[in-house]
Write a protein that binds this DNA or RNA. Structure first.
Length: 293
DNA sequence: GCGACAG
DNA sequence: ATCTTGTCGC
């Protein structure tokens, strides 16, 4: 409790004392409001259409990867197969709202060796509207995969990690679903903050559940008030206090996320995923800095 | 009706 | 997403 009070005070201090200008909110014109409503309705319809194409079932590759990752044994028929997972992210230029860097990194699975990385400077034109992140970011991510297909088609990943949510979303169609459907590849959403949806919120209960995560790899399911399990909260490693929120996007189902904690030893799969995500982040930054020079 | 609201 | 700051681990 003390830590929350501390953070609250610190944030207030930052807002009022360090950045008093931030208090002067930019007036939103009526025209702008209408435009935003217009976009919303249009995007909502598009989401409905795309959602019809979403499949929440594991591909054969995902099933095999699960066995490889969990048992560390070649129980799968195609055990000679080399698996690839990818991560995508978009990072912004500081102080600039439109210029950003989109990055794609492909890793082997389960060894997590980087075999491909690409980065493109882009101009984000579409606005960020909560619930419609996909429309802002997915087109640029598709370009990166297009280039991958041109250059190294054999490295097309069997699973993609997306910054954002999968079905943990107001209409159960987050950016991971969006990318997955457009790409035709299995995607999972990985978010750092809980999307308040279907009754889920960062209330006292939620904080208690977070506190009950003792070590890296510990999880708890995110059950909405509808009773539907929309994803999992995962403590990615022992040193991170805040969990990440994982949810299926396309061509994989939630069950495989839940199955992992059952494995007796470490929940290797998810730790690996988080490790991969960190690698991705590092790459985004590195290439970003490089591109500025 | 109003605020909240992934990145 | 980005801003600050402190702290911890390699």
């Amino acid at each position: 409790m003390a830590i929350y009070l501390y953070r609250l005070l610190r944030d207030l201090f930052y807002k009022f004392v360090i950045h008093p200008l931030g208090l002067i909110a930019r007036p939103v014109s009526r025209a702008e409001q209408l435009l935003s409503e217009d976009i919303r309705l249009k995007w909502e319809r598009e989401q409905t259409l795309l959602k019809e194409q979403m499949v929440l079932k594991d591909t054969e590759e995902i099933k095999c990867m699960l066995q490889v990752g969990q048992l560390q044994e070649d129980t799968c028929m195609s055990s000679n197969m080399q698996y690839y997972i990818a991560g995508v992210d978009i990072s912004f230029v500081k102080g600039d709202d439109v210029t950003a860097c989109a990055a794609l990194v492909v890793l082997t699975f389960p060894k997590l060796e980087v075999v491909y990385s690409d980065c493109k400077m882009i101009e984000l034109t579409k606005p960020y509207i909560p619930g419609f992140l996909g429309f802002r970011e997915v087109p640029f991510l598709l370009e990166l995969f297009n280039d991958l297909q041109q250059r190294r088609p054999e490295l097309m990943p069997h699973l993609v990690m997306v910054d954002g949510n999968g079905i943990l979303h107001p209409r159960e169609f987050g950016s991971a679903c969006h990318l997955g459907v457009c790409l035709g590849l299995p995607c999972i959403g990985v978010a750092k903050k809980l999307f308040h949806v279907d009754g889920l919120e960062k209330n006292v209960e939620h904080h208690e559940k977070i506190a009950s995560l003792e070590k890296g790899g510990d999880t708890f399911p995110l059950v909405g008030s509808s009773g539907r399990v929309l994803g999992m909260a995962l403590r990615s490693c022992s040193s991170s206090k805040n969990p990440i929120y994982v949810s299926p996007g396309h061509l994989n189902q939630l069950e495989w996320l839940i199955l992992i904690p059952e494995s007796t030893s470490e929940s290797g799969n998810k730790q690996m995923m988080d490790k991969a995500r960190k690698i991705l982040k590092t790459y985004t930054r590195m290439q970003h800095e490089e591109s500025i020079r």
